[in-house]
Amino acid sequence: MSNALDEIITLIAPHNRKGVAVAAATTFATDLEWDSLTVMDFVAEMEDHFDIIIPLNLLPDLETVGQVADAVNELTEKKNG
C-alpha cells in the first residue's frame, strides 16, 4: 500500500468533473477522461505538493492512479535517501 495514494486521491477530487469513484486502479485517460494537458497540469500540482520533480518522460507509463502513487513514493524516497 503506497503512502502517497490517499493524498493523490484528495488532489484529484477538485478535477474529478465526472464524479468517478477514484481508487488505485482508476485510469486518467479512460475513467477520469483527462486529456494530456490536464494530466501535465496535474503533474505540476503533485510536484509542488510533494516537493519533487516528476519528469514528463515518465508519463507514458503512468496510466493509473496507483502507478502514479508508486512513482511519487519512489521519487520521494530518492529525494530523502
Partner: peptide, 10 residues
C-alpha cells in the same frame, strides 16, 4: 527525441 529528463514549468 532527446534522451534527457524533461521537466515543465508554469
Amino acid at each position: 527525441m532527446s534522451d534527457a529528463t524533461i521537466v515543465r514549468f508554469k
